[in-house]
């Protein structure tokens, strides 16, 4: 537990840790069961998934509406062909599809058991195809939304999934208004907000925001277990060494 406080409330099925750091939402226990390269790969994947889940619709809007010249030429041509049949502007198109996908997800949650999962999959496929045939969306938009949604489901913690689903909407709006510049504007606001949050006095964005290189070893990647013998410096504890056995390096005989 690395010196944190656990809060368990009688009657609630969940427990949580204090103080919370942003990186903790990307740490899942299976990272530590594998070797470091597998664990680090999974970590990278999650950060990439988070970034894509929040930004991909916005990037698509920016590129399709504002700056098509930044895409490879062949892609622009095929995008243009599919887009010209859709009567809506890109932003509206994406908004409708996101709305439909969110409805499918929520409906899948409410329907009981197997029906829910099947309905989700089938509805996704059929609605996507039907939307393309009805010229309500272009295939590229369906792909973008599908990738973004799958990326949200890669994230290991529930609150992060909810935040991502909500966060992508304002980013889309500001990108629809200002293009790629709006994209950077949105991300600066997000980073500024994240850097200013504090959990129990500890900076929330801790290994990244007040840059703590010692803690980065469990941030973007997961170092070798024999190197993880200190508790995170971001969390104030009296004991610096981790409890429990930490493995020794392979070369050391002891």
């Amino acid at each position: 537990m690395e010196g944190r406080i656990a809060v368990m409330v009688d009657g609630s099925p969940t427990a949580f840790f204090l103080p919370t750091l942003f990186v903790e939402f990307f740490q899942a226990s299976e990272d530590y069961f594998e070797r470091t390269y597998t664990g680090s790969f999974l970590r990278f994947l999650r950060y990439l998934a988070f970034f894509l889940a929040v930004s991909l619709p916005a990037i698509y809007i920016a590129l399709a509406s504002f700056d098509p010249e930044l895409l490879p030429t062949n892609l622009v041509v095929s995008l243009g062909q599919s887009r010209k049949e859709v009567p809506f502007p890109v932003f509206l198109e994406i908004l409708i599809q996101i709305f439909i996908i969110e409805l499918i997800i929520e409906a899948g949650l409410r329907l009981p058991g197997q029906v829910g999962q099947t309905a989700g999959v089938v509805a996704g496929i059929i609605m996507g195809q039907a939307a393309i045939s009805a010229k309500l969306a272009s295939p590229a938009v369906i792909i973008v939304i599908a990738i973004a949604t799958i990326c949200t489901f890669t994230l290991p913690s529930g609150p992060l999934v909810q935040s991502t689903r909500i966060l992508r909407l304002p980013l889309m709006v500001i990108t629809a208004v200002f293009g790629l510049y709006g994209f950077s504007l949105g991300w600066v606001f997000i980073l500024a907000h994240l850097s200013s949050l504090e959990s129990l006095g500890i900076p929330y964005f801790a290994p990244f925001a007040p840059l703590r290189p010692a803690d980065l070893k469990d941030g973007f990647y997961r170092t070798w277990l024999w190197k993880m013998d200190q508790r995170p410096t971001s969390i104030p504890t009296q004991q610096k060494r981790r409890q429990g056995t930490t493995r020794y390096k392979e070369n050391e005989d002891e």
Binding site: S195, S196, A209
Partner: peptide, 20 residues
């Protein structure tokens, strides 16, 4: 507007953002 938003939060946040 962005500058106002960031400056409002204090020197620590400004410093952290510079690092990022």
């Amino acid at each position: 507007l962005t500058a106002v938003y960031i400056m409002n939060k204090g020197a620590q946040v400004v410093a952290r953002l510079n690092a990022i």
